[in-house]
Design a protein around this nucleic acid. Structure first.
Length: 256
DNA sequence: GAGTCGGCAGTCT
DNA sequence: CAGACTGCCGACT
């Protein structure tokens, strides 16, 4: 992120916003000079807008959800109380992350509360193409009963796609809601290779976990271990209690 | 399967 | 500041 406001002139609309930001009180210290910058970038959900500061990406929204760029920038200003100008280039790692070919870029979550940060951290550990229930995230975040609060925290995820809150689904097998619409959640998961028809079938059958009768281990159905179980040895369970009663123990990777 | 209510963090009043 | 309200849920009628 450089601080040359004239480089890479943006489209007219953003320019007006940029000028408005320049009208803010001049920064006095060196750190104040680090002005956050916004960029547009492609994603599986179409164009996204993102803002990053020196500490990393702070806010990301799909263009479709944000409505338009000015609304997005206004959300950023009110959330962080900082001006934002067009950036000359996207933050390192953002484009590969949005393509699904790399880990997340540096993220700046300093303005996120403690609980929410734990929730986001747990969510970030869910591998691509897999899903976990809200209750699982609550437990991993250290607040096993705060299931609904997890939903609230994810609804306020400042960096969707980068922290994959679309991989958090309902315990009954439904996909649940999503920031920019349930349809986007399905699109993202299908794009990561999750078989949504199979998810729906398992939900309808009441199958929450899948075990192997050769290893005696149960997993969430999308866990990569579960996907390797051959038909002859696959066994479904409605709950972890049921699986335990049958002599199975939870997978150490997906921790059902 | 729809309705109800518990539980909890954040926000509003 | 306390209490009410709300929300990408879940367990139990």
């Amino acid at each position: 992120m450089t601080d040359t406001p004239t480089a890479d002139r943006p489209a007219p609309d953003p320019l007006l916003a940029g000028l408005r930001d320049l009208a803010e009180p001049a920064p006095t210290t060196l750190t104040d000079r680090v002005v956050d910058g916004w960029v547009r970038a492609p994603s599986p959900l179409g164009e996204v807008y993102a803002v990053a500061g020196a500490g990393g990406v702070r806010l990301l929204r799909t263009a479709a959800h944000a409505g338009d760029l000015e609304v997005f920038l206004e959300e950023y200003r009110t959330r962080h109380g900082r001006p934002v100008r067009p950036a000359t280039r996207p933050p390192r790692g953002l484009l590969p992350a949005l393509r699904g070919t790399g880990g997340p870029p540096e993220l700046d979550l300093t303005d996120v509360g403690d609980f929410a940060r734990q929730v986001l951290a747990a969510t970030a550990r869910i591998p691509a193409g897999q899903v976990r229930p809200y209750g699982w995230v609550a437990r991993e975040a250290g607040h096993p009963k705060a299931v609904r609060a997890v939903g609230t925290a994810l609804a306020r995820n400042p960096v969707p796609l980068l922290i994959p809150c679309h991989r958090v689904v309902r315990g009954d097998g439904g996909l649940g809601q999503y920031l920019s619409g349930a349809g986007d959640k399905a699109t993202l998961l299908a794009g990561e290779g999750l078989d949504l028809d199979r998810v729906a079938d398992l939900a309808a059958a009441g199958t929450r976990l899948i075990g192997s009768d050769t290893t005696g281990v149960v997993c969430f159905p999308s866990c990569h271990h579960a996907r390797r179980i051959t038909d002859a040895h696959r066994r479904g369970f409605a709950s972890l209690d049921r699986a335990r009663a049958a002599g199975y123990r939870p997978c150490r990777d997906c921790r059902p």
